[in-house]
Write a protein that binds this DNA or RNA. Sequence first.
DNA 1: AATATAGTTCAAATGTTTTTGAACTATGTA
DNA 2: TACATAGTTCAAAAACATTTGAACTATATT
Lengths: 95, 95
Amino acid sequence: MTQQTQTTEAEIKVFKALADPIRLEIIRYLNQLDHEVSCGEIGQVMHISKTSGSYHFKILQEAGLITTHKVAREKYVSLDRSTVDQYLTHFWQNL
Amino acid sequence: MTQQTQTTEAEIKVFKALADPIRLEIIRYLNQLDHEVSCGEIGQVMHISKTSGSYHFKILQEAGLITTHKVAREKYVSLDRSTVDQYLTHFWQNL
DNA sequence: AATATAGTTCAAATGTTTTTGAACTATGTA
DNA sequence: TACATAGTTCAAAAACATTTGAACTATATT
């Protein structure tokens, strides 16, 4: 922490997470679907390797933009709209 | 253009621009001030070199988050709230 | 004219993010 | 048991972003 608040760090994580075309596509995809999907299915749709997928899902999760839960071998992902709402939709209130 | 739309490219520029603590501070600063300020003044407040300032202002401008105009030697900067509104406040409509 | 101030540009150095493949864990299926 | 499938982790490579100082342009002040 150099001089930023906790709030800014979470905020930066959200913006970094959204500042990538693959991750923005994932968010788009989850938004239009509106039900849970596995990492593998998303990876196929995005045409990315499973390693790369794993990396991007981690970033999205650490930003709080998705939530996940494991069912047997598979990891299911869903959009957490409240984070988008907090940092984007209510950006001015947050500043 | 690999598979993204023009809209996505502009959107990515906005998120990249906001995904940096210095630039987010600049936006914050401009927002609370609500009048034009010179690059130099902002640079002093942020404790950054003029070269670094020049770099960050370029990124913010290319994202459409600030507008600038030169008066003699000085470059004045002001916040373009409509870009924030388009990409953040109305994020869901934009997707 | 000489000097100072505001900002830009450039290339090099440094730092951070993303991709890759190989090796791994855990679960499912024959 | 053997093999397949879903996902993770690791370290190296590649790509990209940021900072730095020096040299520059343009305007202002003495």
